[in-house]
Design a protein around this nucleic acid. Structure first.
Lengths: 96, 96
DNA sequence: TTGACATGCAAGCTACGACTTGCCTATTAT
DNA sequence: ATAATAGGCAAGTCGTAGCTTGCATGTCAA
């Protein structure tokens, strides 16, 4: 799964992940309106849909069809590949 | 610093970070030859140099001029922004 | 000082990614 | 059945990232 990095490369996709962390199980329309409200993102529905497809392909978003809607959840599991690949220093507060 | 994500988006740059983790303080030429040897990367010197500039701009690589050479070190500190932004599940081994 | 070595700068080319537009499919309500 | 709702598919445009090429800068050795 190497497309995590590509998925994280786009700022809109990162904001989508933020939004899905705040509220679980959002539909595409919920996400679109919330991205406009909270953040200044005013992309088309199709654009957000394509972003979600990239995120889902990377495993960062899990979906479930519910009738004519599609619900989206955030999943941080693929992010472990990053912290396992390179050393991430712990941020202990250091005195000067 | 939002360009961490862009810096990680390229596979060659990720391999450069891997290589710098294995051996510290490499020069540009060292990196070029090692990228060809260990991994199958055969980009030009200028290409690698540009990649290093992106990584340095993202704070993932720290440099130091030493005479006519430039030494490079890996720095994982910017990666904390990722693990602090989204929840990364700990991978405890689970019994089935 | 002169030449070899290690790197930097800048312009140009090409390919891919993000976005839009238009139409299509599936589900629910009346 | 029909219309409205929620989303999917596909082609096309545009900008930018990655790569190369050519030349310039700076450093060390003889």
């Amino acid at each position: 799964m190497d497309n995590i990095y590509r998925a994280l490369a786009d700022p809109t996709r990162r904001t989508i992940l933020d939004e899905l962390c705040k509220r679980e199980g959002q539909t595409l329309f919920e996400l679109c309106s919330r991205l406009v409200m909270a953040h200044g993102i005013s992309s088309s529905r199709q654009s957000i849909s394509q972003h979600l497809a990239v995120l889902e392909d990377a495993g960062l978003v899990i979906t479930e069809r519910r009738g004519r809607s599609k619900l989206h959840w955030f999943d941080g599991a693929p992010l472990r590949a990053i912290v396992m690949r390179w050393p991430v220093p712990t941020d202990r507060k250091e005195k000067s």
